[in-house]
Design a protein around this nucleic acid. Structure first.
Length: 106
DNA sequence: TTAATGACCTATC
DNA sequence: CGATAGGCCATTA
């Protein structure tokens, strides 16, 4: 590691995000639960916000529980995130939300 | 240590 | 159905 990040919940969150298989998405609450705190959904958003390793952390695979992408995506915008997911094989419904069948659940 | 922040979630009007 | 308010938890200054 580059020695820039302290070991905390963030590290666990990163592991969970990287554990999401390609072609699927995960919600903040799901990642938080996998990290050990089902109520720390906001911490997940923060962990991805700092995104120390955007090359290894596919934050574009993280969406809200309703399947809606975040409004403050760090890579460029919601449209970009949708394109990334489409490139991974994820499909959206008519509402612009990710289908629940593409949600990765442990 | 206290206070403030934040890419959420749920409940209520 | 759409908008608003509050609560939760960890990190930073």
């Amino acid at each position: 590691m580059v020695g820039n990040q302290k070991n905390g919940f963030f590290a666990a969150i990163y592991e969970c995000v990287k554990a999401v298989p390609k072609g699927k998405v995960a919600s903040y609450g799901t990642i938080a639960a996998m990290a050990g705190n089902p109520r720390a959904a906001r911490i997940v958003g923060w962990a991805l916000h700092v995104n120390p390793e955007p090359d290894a952390i596919p934050c574009y695979r993280i969406v809200t529980k309703g399947g809606r992408v975040s409004s403050a995506f760090a890579f460029g915008g919601e449209n970009v995130q949708r394109a990334m997911l489409l490139a991974d094989g994820v499909e959206f419904d008519e509402n612009g939300n990710v289908k629940q069948e593409y949600f990765f659940r442990p």
